[in-house]
Design a protein around this nucleic acid. Structure first.
Lengths: 191, 191
DNA sequence: CCAATTCTGTAGCGTGCGCTGCAAAACGTC
DNA sequence: GACGTTTTGCAGCGCACGCTACAGAATTGG
C-alpha cells in the first residue's frame, strides 16, 4: 500500500469540511443552503466540493453520519440498557442543554422529515434515527414497569423528545428548559 | 354600497383557491411549492393569483388562517375549559384520526418552523399557534392537580403533540396510532 | 526534467424560481 | 355602442440554483 498518492494534494481537511457543512445544513436547512453558501462558509471551491463528495446530497449524507454519531455520543450514551428512570432523567437533562448549546437549531433529522421528501434514502435514515432513539429509551426503561406500560411510555417519550426539538427553532432557552422540565417531572412520577 | 363592481368578474372562487393552496403547501411544503405548481393544481393563472393575493407569501398567510381555523374547529374544540383529563383524552383521539385523515402530512405550522426562517411575521404566527395550543391544554386541565403539576404536564403534552405531528410525515397510520395511544395512556395515569 | 495524476479556480451551462408588462377579454354604466 | 374598470393568458424578466468543462497548478515516480 502506498503511503502517498500521486497528484496535487487536497488543500483542505475533509472532516473539517463535513463538520462545517453540518453546521450550515443544521442552521439554515438543507434546501436553503446553496453550494455557493458552502463555498463561502467553508472556503472551498465548488469544484473541490464536487470532486470530493460527488454532490450536495452526498455531502448531506456525510454530515448526517456525523450528526448521528454526535447524538449517540452526547445524548444516547446516557441511555444505557437497564439504566432505569434515572438514566432517562439524565438523558433529558442533557437533551435540554444540548438543544440550547446548539443555538436552538432543533434537530437536523426533524428538518429533513419535510425537506428530504421524495428521497427514499433520506427517508430511511430519518425513520431509522427515530427507531434508534425509541430502542435506546425502551432499553433503558426495561423492567421499570409492566412491558406494555413501558412501551406506551417510551412511545410518548419519543414524541415529546422530537416535539421539543421541533419547537426549539421558534423558541428560547427558558422555554426549552421549561418544556424539558415538564417532561422530566412527568417521568419522575413514573418512579 | 354597490351590489356589483365594474370590470371583468373573477373566474374562480377565492376561498376554493385558498383551500387548494393550503392543500399544496401542506402536502409538499411552502418552499417546495412553486407558483407554477399552484397554477397547475388550482387551474388559475399566475397573473390571477398575483392580482388577487399579491404574492406567494400572502397566499401562504391566507392558507395559514384557514389552517388555524380548521385546527380550532376540529381539534381544539374538544379542549373546553375545565374539561378535565376526559377532554384531553378526546382531543388526543381526535388528533390521531385527524393526522391520519390528512394523509400523514404532519403539521403545516411545524413545517414552517424551519421553512419560514427569517420571516418575522411567520415566526410570530408559529409561536402564537403553539401558545394557543398550550393555553387550550392548560384551560382544560385546570384544577385536575396542583397548578405547578398541571403546568408541567401541559408543557410535556404540547411537546408530545408537536412531536407526533413531526414524526407523522415519515411514519404510517399504525405507528401514529401507537404513539398517540402511548400518550393517552400516560395521560390516563394522571387521573 | 518529464510524464502521469490529482486537485483548484473560473467561467458558464441549463433550468426553474418569484414576479411583472401588456394586450385582449369580460363585465357594469351611460 | 362607447367608455372605464378589472381580470386573464402569454411571454418573458432577472436571478439563483445544482452542477460541470476546462485549463492550469501542484504533487509523485522515473
Amino acid at each position: 500500500m502506498a503511503t502517498t498518492t500521486p497528484g496535487r494534494p487536497r488543500s483542505f481537511d475533509v472532516d473539517a469540511v463535513v463538520d462545517g457543512a453540518l453546521d450550515l445544513f443544521w442552521a439554515q436547512g438543507y434546501r436553503e443552503t446553496s453550494t455557493r453558501d458552502l463555498e463561502r462558509a467553508l472556503g472551498v471551491g465548488q469544484s473541490s466540493l464536487y470532486n470530493t463528495f460527488g454532490s450536495k446530497r452526498d455531502l448531506l449524507l456525510r454530515a448526517l453520519d456525523l450528526y448521528e454519531a454526535n447524538v449517540k455520543d452526547d445524548l444516547l450514551v446516557h441511555l444505557e440498557p437497564k439504566g432505569g428512570l434515572r438514566a432517562v432523567d439524565t438523558f433529558l437533562a442533557a437533551l435540554a442543554e444540548w438543544i440550547i448549546a446548539s443555538d436552538l437549531r432543533g434537530c437536523l433529522v426533524v428538518s429533513l422529515m419535510s425537506a428530504g421528501d421524495g428521497d427514499p434514502v433520506i427517508d430511511e435514515r430519518v425513520s431509522e434515527y427515530r427507531a434508534g432513539i425509541r430502542r435506546a429509551l425502551l432499553g433503558a426503561m426495561d423492567g421499570t414497569a409492566p412491558a406494555a406500560e413501558v412501551a406506551a411510555r417510551a412511545e410518548a417519550l419519543v414524541a415529546a423528545c422530537f416535539g421539543v426539538q421541533a419547537i426549539a427553532r421558534s423558541s428560547d432557552p427558558a422555554e426549552v428548559r421549561a418544556i424539558v422540565e415538564g417532561i422530566r417531572s412527568v417521568v419522575a412520577a413514573w418512579g
